[in-house]
């Protein structure tokens, strides 16, 4: 409904193991659900955070982005981020100079509808196929226009890398430390971290998915991030190497070992 009516909603998801009730501990198995899990083709914004500071920062950002672009916005964490303790600086967004996008009432604006103003008529059901088609074209166009303005990612040491490790969320912490360690050993390894899983930083990843490089995808799921990556880099020559551990955490040591195995 939020997708259909362009309601500026913010949803915070902390991923658990699945399918069904499975575990309440941890996973990255709700990536597909969060980015694309709906009927029809609703457009969404999904930020994948990797620590408490980001959870705080991106929740503030999510409200602003949701109001600005009117797409449902998600902050995607996981069971570890939901339950662990670590330091975080809580701050008043005003003091940091964060500007709020002004919210707007959808209903109950001043004046009598039909007399002083048009009524707000919000629907998610259409009478004809053509009506829906037209509405969707506008959604897609708005989303595509917005994409370059909001995509976020992080990348390091990719220029000369033979292996680029791709990870998101809490797994990225292990990825970052592993790359640091491997570089210290003189190995040509870099990382790429999508922060917005949707829209996905496709052009940026495409630019480095070149030659006979290997893209090692580390995720606590059976290929949900990999699916987004494959879709983004279609046509590129880099080889995809999966490192899938559905519902399990991934440590720095495991990533280091895996990279050495494929180098």
């Amino acid at each position: 409904m939020a997708e259909a009516m362009r309601l500026p909603t913010v949803t915070i998801i902390q991923q658990r193991g699945g399918p069904s009730t499975a575990t309440v501990i941890y996973s990255q198995q709700e990536v597909t659900l969060t980015t694309y899990g709906g009927n029809g083709e609703g457009m969404r914004i999904v930020y994948s955070t990797s620590n408490h500071q980001e959870l705080f920062d991106y929740t503030i950002k999510a409200f602003n982005v949701a109001w600005k672009y009117r797409f449902p916005t998600f902050v995607l964490g996981d069971g570890y981020q939901a339950k662990m303790r670590e330091s975080v600086t809580l701050y008043d967004p005003d003091e940091k100079g964060v500007e709020y996008v002004a919210p707007e009432a959808y209903v109950g604006k001043p004046g009598t509808p039909g007399v002083d103003r048009e009524p707000g008529l919000y629907r998610n059901t259409y009478n004809t196929e053509e009506e829906l088609f037209e509405v969707l074209q506008q959604h897609f166009a708005d989303f595509n226009k917005m994409t370059p303005e909001i995509i976020e990612y992080d990348q390091e040491a990719t220029d000369d890398a033979d292996v680029i490790v791709i990870g998101h969320g809490v797994v990225f912490r292990g990825v970052r430390d592993a790359v640091k360690e491997l570089r210290a050993e003189g190995l040509k390894v870099g990382y790429f971290r999508p922060i917005t899983l949707r829209p996905f930083p496709a052009e940026q990843l495409k630019a480095i998915a070149t030659g006979n490089r290997k893209l090692l995808i580390a995720e606590s799921a059976e290929g949900q991030l990999a699916k987004l990556v494959k879709d983004a880099i279609y046509g590129c020559t880099a080889e995809i190497v999966p490192y899938f551990r559905p519902g399990l955490g991934i440590t720095t040591e495991q990533i280091v070992a895996k990279v050495k195995e494929v180098l």
């Binding site: 409904m1 959808y106 509808p113 039909g114 009524p119 707000g120 919000y122 998610n124 059901t125």
Partner: peptide, 8 residues
């Protein structure tokens, strides 16, 4: 109606 309306 000429009132604010939401179809849910």
């Amino acid at each position: 109606f000429n009132v604010d309306s939401v179809q849910t």
